[in-house]
Design a protein around this nucleic acid. Structure first.
Lengths: 144, 144
DNA sequence: AGTATAATTGAAAATGAATTTCAATTTCAA
DNA sequence: TTGAAATTGAAATTCATTTTCAATTATACT
C-alpha cells in the first residue's frame, strides 16, 4: 500500500494539489477495500473512523484517485459509478451473474488479440475496451 | 415496420395491456429512428407530430418496447438509457470514438466463440454480453 | 514571523435522468 | 350501458452526481 500512497502523493504534487490528511485517509480507506466500490460505500467506510470527513470530499478524492491512476471506472451495468483498483492490477473482463449479482474477473489473451484485429480492420485505433458477459454463475445455474 | 408493429400489438395483448393510439404513435416513431436513441430524444421527436403526448407516456412505452423485444438497451458509456432496434437485427458490438462520439457496429464470430469458451471455462452459463471498444475512428485519428 | 495567495473543505443547493404518484380520462368486457 | 381496470400526463419524487459558496487551512514569498 505504501507504493500506491507514494504514487498518489507524487501525482498530486505534480499538478500542484495538496496532500491533505483527509485525502490520505480516503485513499487509504479505498486501498483497503474490496473492488468495485461506489462513492457512497466508500463514504460510509471513511465515516466510521473519520466522522468529520464529508461526502463531497470523498467524492472529489475519488476523482483524484482515478486521475492519479490508482483506480479505474468499473461499469457493472447499473448506472452507478464504481471504482476498482488499477495500480498493479492487470486489465480484465467480467463475468456478471444475473441472479446473485456476483462477478468474476477473467482474462483471455486470444480475445484481446482478436479485439485489436477487429478494430484495425475498421481503421479504428483502439485505446481500451470493456467486455462484460452476463449470465449465471455455477451456484445459480444449479439452483435454477 | 408492419411486422414489428404486429409483434408489439401481440405482445401487449398477451399481457393484457391495451394497444392505445399513443403507444402506437410512439412505437412508430421509435421504429423510424436511427439507433441508440434516448428517451428524451424520442420524446422530442414524438412531440413534433403529437404535442399532446407526454414525456411519461414515452418513457413508459419505451419500457414496453423493450419488454416486447423490439429494442434492447445500448450502453454507450455515458450513463443514459439508450435503446437500439432489436427485432431483425443481429447481435453486434461497438467501436466508440472517444473524440467525436460516433460509433460503429461490428461483429466477429471468432470472438463470440472465444467468449463462450471463456465463460464455460469458469463454469459460467453465459446469456448475453456487451463489448465496447473505445478509441479513435479513422477521421479523428488523422486529425490528432 | 507575517501576509498575500491559492487550495481545500463540507454543507447545502443544483442538476439531470429515471421513476412514481395521483386524479382525470379512456377503454374494455360483460 | 355500466362497472372495473388500464392509461394518461403533469407534477412530484428519488437518487446519484456535481457545483456553489463561505469559512478554513496551507503554502509561498517577503
Amino acid at each position: 500500500m505504501e507504493k500506491e500512497i507514494e504514487l498518489f502523493r507524487g501525482e498530486l504534487k505534480k499538478i500542484h494539489l495538496r496532500v491533505t490528511s483527509q485525502r490520505l485517509k480516503i485513499v487509504e480507506a479505498f486501498l483497503k477495500t474490496e473492488k468495485h466500490i461506489t462513492c457512497d460505500e466508500l463514504y460510509l467506510i471513511v465515516r466510521r473512523n473519520h466522522p468529520d470527513i464529508g461526502y463531497t470530499t470523498v467524492y472529489r478524492t475519488l476523482k483524484l484517485i482515478q486521475e492519479t491512476g490508482l483506480a479505474r471506472e468499473a461499469d457493472l451495468g447499473d448506472k452507478v459509478l464504481r471504482l476498482e483498483h488499477e495500480f498493479g492490477h492487470k486489465h480484465h473482463d467480467h463475468l456478471i451473474c444475473l441472479k446473485c449479482g456476483r462477478f468474476f474477473e477473467v482474462f483471455d489473451p486470444d480475445i484481446e488479440l482478436l479485439q485489436e484485429k477487429l478494430a484495425r480492420k475498421h481503421k479504428f485505433n483502439p485505446i481500451r475496451h470493456k467486455m462484460d458477459i452476463f449470465g449465471y454463475c455455477q451456484k445459480c445455474s444449479l439452483k435454477q
